[in-house]
Design a protein around this nucleic acid. Sequence first.
DNA 1: CACTAGATGCTCT
DNA 2: GAGCATCTAGTGA
Length: 202
Amino acid sequence: MAGSADFAFLSRGAVEAAPRLLGSVLVHESGDGVVAVRITEVEAYAGAYDPASHSFRGPTDRNRVMFGPPGHLYVYRSHGIHWCGNVVADLDGVAAGLLLRAGEIVEGRELARLRRGAVAERDLTRGPGRLGQALGITGADGGAALLDGGPLRLETGEPVPAAQVRSGPRVGVSRAADVPWRFWIDGEPSVSPYRRSARVRD
DNA sequence: CACTAGATGCTCT
DNA sequence: GAGCATCTAGTGA
């Protein structure tokens, strides 16, 4: 449980917690080995007041983890192929998720490359689907407790100077397309490019 | 680099 | 059946 206190900010709302997750390290130990990634880009998804969130319409079998206590992992399947991970935030009973969009590999580069195949170096962990694949995250990891020292865990990283934190609209969402709830570390090559959804409503 | 189109299969209506 | 919290491969400048 060492380090758990460092993540007390996760019990705050998604938008407040998201930028503070930058610089933390997500570690995944599996039978294949270890991959650790320093988080460089996240998006905040609030629940009831955020129409872009999976939890906007209330709990379902898929999104139930987001309504639980902070510090757990919400995993969803995107576009049929990709596994994407969120760190659950806000108080128990309030839905909030921090989508892990990109990271910098700090350990296990060879294993990550094995999982990702022959792609450009910067594409190893650029984008939520790629990041999930590099870390070896699947639906089986959904609901995992990240602050209990298990094989899938969050660790404290080097603090990120506030001046290096940037924000802007979230990638690919068709509702609430303009709220600046995406946060990233300025100058990080792993940060994914902005793409506006082709079907923005509102 | 900017832009476009299509694959893919799951979730919810 | 509609709609995706994405990615890759194609084009063209």
